[in-house]
Amino acid sequence: MAEELLKGGNAVICEDEKGRGWKRIDSPSEVRINHNEVPSNISYKEFVFSKTEPIFYFKNRKENYELAEAADGNGKIVFLGAKPCDARSVEIMSKVFNWDYKDKFFNEKAERTIVIGVACSYKDEFCFCTSVNINPASPEGSDIFLVPLDEKEYAVRIITEKGKEFISPYLKYLTEGNAARSEEALGKIKWPGKKFEPGKVREWIGNNFEHKLFDEIGSTCLGCGQCAFACPVCHCFDIVDEECSYECGRRMKNWDACQFGLFTLHSSGHNPRDNQNKRYRQRIAHKFKYYADKFGEILCTGCGRCSRGCPVQIDIAQVAAEINSTANRV
């Protein structure tokens, strides 16, 4: 089935063998469905929201500028083996890319995605999907949902119309299953415990903007972009021009991160977020308050990547839990 899937002009995206990130696979032997190991260091968002992509080209001949559209591909982008904490990423980011102006670079790829999710039986001290209203057995965000039954066998559940249409040519590879068996498998999954109440965190941030908690975290935060770039839903970007040859250039849309000091620096030298405390506060507030206020979604899926990968072990769930308990104390 994987072979036929690959032939159809589809880009099949799987987690890479080292768990560093996700990659487009070329052969069925590269298929890797990770449902019981730690999530990859970096999420798959780059296949929808590219880490770098041209948004147009210009020919830089004096007197005669021509703007050319950046080309985009077609064919489905199939995320194979998305844990529930990954499966929702595209729909969450879609809010900001469409709330008014529509970003076609995101949308053209987002529309072509097929999310084949998988029920997740991995859980470690950094997982907190249940705290942000996602759970490891949830097909939410998936078009097709796999439930691991044993080493080799998956129950396949068709979740959306898009998923149904996509899978129809491949139905011949599937056999009629027993719904009770997959229900049983789902029932056995142990959910990570709830670490905080997102509504509490959201409310507290709104009222405690100058709290010393942010200073404590900011004092060890290094200001790198690991958290933002590993995150399945962080979506901030930069726009820069670069050359592609002597006479031609292009404008690029590149990942950017609110933790970088330059992110908000005005050319006058003024910087509204001039220290790491404020920048970390922005990260937390954007995830749990601003995005939720504006778009009705928490900008976090509880995957724990930012915490696992943080070079100084800032654990976002721990921070949120601390906020929650501070909020409960007052």
């Binding site: 970096i42 880490k51 972009g225 990942w255």
Partner: peptide
């Protein structure tokens, strides 16, 4: 090719202390 330009290498490095990095 896998680099995402998060600059975690630079930020974690005790010797990368330039006030304004050449990359910026």
């Amino acid at each position: 090719e896998k680099c995402v330009k998060c600059y975690a290498c630079r930020q974690a490095c005790p010797l990368c202390y330039c006030e304004k990095c050449i990359a910026d």
